[in-house]
Nucleic acid binder design. Sequence first.
RNA 1: GUGGCUUUAGCUCAGCUGGUUAGAGCAUCAGAUUGUGGAUCUGAGGGUCGAGGGUUCAAAUCCCUCAAGCCACCCCA
Length: 407
Amino acid sequence: MPQPYWDAMSGAAKDLAEGFGYLRIETPTFEATELFVRAVGEASDIVSKEMFTFKDRGDRSLTLRPEGTAPIVRAYFDAGMQLEPQPVRLYYLGPYFRSERPQRGRFHEFRQFGIEAIGDPSPLLDVEAIVLGWSWFGALDTGGIHLLLNSIGDEVCRPAYRELLRDYYRPHLAELSGESRMRFEKNPLRLFDSKEPQDQELKLKAPRIVDHLCQPCAEAFQAVREGLSAEAIPFTLNPELVRGLDYYTRTVFEYQHESLGGAQNALGGGGRYDGLAAALGYRTTPGVGFAIGLDRTAMVLRERKPLAPPVPDVWALAVDPKDELYVFHLAGTLRARGLRVVVDPGAARLDAKLRKAAKRGARVALLVGPEEREKGEAVVRDMRLKTQVSVAEREVVPTVTQALSAG
RNA sequence: GUGGCUUUAGCUCAGCUGGUUAGAGCAUCAGAUUGUGGAUCUGAGGGUCGAGGGUUCAAAUCCCUCAAGCCACCCCA
């Protein structure tokens, strides 16, 4: 990933997250395999076919982290953060690994920016997470982001709905694709993820979870929608959005980008996971967060507006290598003023060095030859106007800054 | 995990049915009246031909395995 994009994305992430009171956390790159199996779910795609798993010398099974939420919940308890004022707000930037067949926008190693707010069930935190992610895309000026929203209920209303869904599909089992028949058994909600043509029609008439939420879930969902509306964030309700990870409850959302075709259009997603802590064997603790793919966002940024690498303000060079140290010293005084100064070393010809200065886009060239050195001067050349003046050493800094501010 | 394709210089690629020192463009560097620029011209450097094995007198070229990547699925970031 080109550095300028990484800098822009991580910088915006840090500014925004810290602006909302989130603190940075880094967790290990790999964890006990069991952590992900229990968190993400046995039947999920991640666990069933996408993990980089290996054995250590003690024959323990370890896995390169395929996602960030489970390790952070683990760290939350291991570090005793449940004793801090709740919710605990954390953000992270780092590499993740999935062993899927790679293709455009999907890599074995990819980078994510994510946040988690753990320890408080308030729907305001759902709103906060969504707003934070939305603002991040806004700060980067990606444009074209669509927010998809849904609620998938909780342990109170989802089991009943799951049976309702099974009742609906049961008479049609024979018509379903093989994959979907598997999901019917293991995780009926994910029947909605199917894009198989023969499953489409059935999906349309299937009962929708939003119509079967229990009272608390319905109220929470209502509060999230009102919060987003109050913040003037446009969203699309999508009853088919169920997400691939088992730990989600209630609010789920996804950021999609219109320019990315087909299946790789998801730039990020998240939701509430009030059951995750318990699934990991800790005390039941609510949480909400999102993860955004930085590699994919970089693809969008690159298409939208190519970023140029930083350009030096001053290109400093000596005609004779004997004067290099003098030039190096002058460059230092300019850097002390906050300028970006490149010293061109060696005995190359003057025109060659100026050619490099021009190619790198330097606004000003600082030249010193034997004559200037003798008189304690330096030539300040405006690369754009192609004009230059010879000034005394003490005049170098003001002359250069003036040339830079001229245009 | 399924199907198809790709991998040759820093980058983009050529290299026909296996044959000697593997090429081009761009980029880099150097020269073109020895202190003044992004153009032009000339020249130079740069490659374990993705990795490993096999067939053959001979492999970038044929076969196998693996890896990375691309496209479409599946699904996700």
